[in-house]
């Protein structure tokens, strides 16, 4: 692409790209090691509303990936940094497992609502409480707006429907912090000291990973693992910089063509 500068950073999605549930994508660990030998920064970015960084790190280490906690940036991290930046005291509609990423945040007399996937909190009383706060002017911050997700017992509602319902009732717009928001990608890059034009994103979700990254000015590589379905590359415009079999092939392309 004209005007594109030398590559400085690679952002990598986790679930569906490096591993599928508790199995690593074949060759992904070695490919990550090869990437680390090149002079690029690496960051792992994911939309999660219930897994803390520590949980994610433990799984990656169990699968023998060479990863450090400070290299992980999640939608929860993005929410936390927004809350800190605005000095909000949030009402956290999050599962307990996510709360450790908000340790140290003042949640007394809340003046903002942070909403993730939290079936325990999605009941009439708690949603009314959140609604009343929003109607009185508290900002609504959504970890992401996924419609639904797959559970062992079938499909289940994601946080998106509840965010949408609150938006309608209070006639407001939520600030979404996770992928595919532009701010998510720029924040993930911010401490690496590089601009989006110097970065590439690898992921299995055409809209959230590749479309979002490209919309932020990065290159996007779509891997045909995880949630990829045939034809996904045609769902976004402009199309992915590259669509390839899996993570090792994406790394080979970067090492050969983008450095």
């Amino acid at each position: 692409m004209a005007g594109r500068r030398a590559l400085k950073a690679v952002l990598i999605d986790l679930s569906g790209t490096l591993h599928i549930e508790d199995t690593a994508v074949p060759g992904a660990q070695d490919a990550l090691n090869r990437l680390r030998q090149a002079s690029v920064a690496v960051k792992f970015v994911t939309n999660t509303t219930k897994e803390s960084k520590r949980n994610l790190l433990e799984r990656l280490q169990r699968l023998n990936f060479d990863v450090q906690e400070k290299e992980i940036f999640t939608s929860l991290s993005a929410a936390r940094s927004l809350v800190e930046q605005k000095h909000h005291r949030p009402l956290l509609l999050l599962e307990d497992s996510a709360l450790e990423d908000f340790m140290g945040i003042d949640t007394s007399e809340p003046n903002a609502v942070v909403i993730g996937l939290s079936p325990d909190h999605f009941n009439y009383q708690t949603l009314n409480q959140a609604f009343r706060m929003i109607l009185e002017g508290a900002p609504l911050i959504a970890i992401h707006k996924a419609r639904y997700y797959k559970r062992k017992d079938g499909l289940a509602l994601g946080p998106g429907p509840f965010v949408t319902g609150l938006e309608y009732a209070a006639d407001c717009k939520a600030t979404v912090v996770g992928k595919p928001e532009k701010s998510f990608f720029t924040q993930a890059l911010s401490d690496l000291g590089c601009s989006p034009t110097e970065a590439v994103m690898i992921g299995d979700d055409a809209r959230d990973d590749v479309g979002g990254a490209q919309n932020a000015g990065m290159l996007g590589i779509l891997v045909q693992t995880g949630k990829y379905r045939e034809g996904d590359e045609n769902k976004i415009n402009p199309p992915p910089h590259l669509t390839c079999d899996s993570f090792p092939e994406a790394v080979a392309h970067i090492l050969k063509n983008l450095l």
């Binding site: 009439y124 949603l127 009314n128 609604f131 009343r132 109607l135 509602l157 429907p161 509840f162 949408t164 319902g165 609150l166 938006e167 309608y168 009732a169």
Partner: peptide
């Protein structure tokens, strides 16, 4: 106090 009406859940 105020309570969410059916419209919010319809939108969801």
């Amino acid at each position: 106090g105020l309570a969410l009406d059916v419209g919010a859940y319809m939108k969801a």
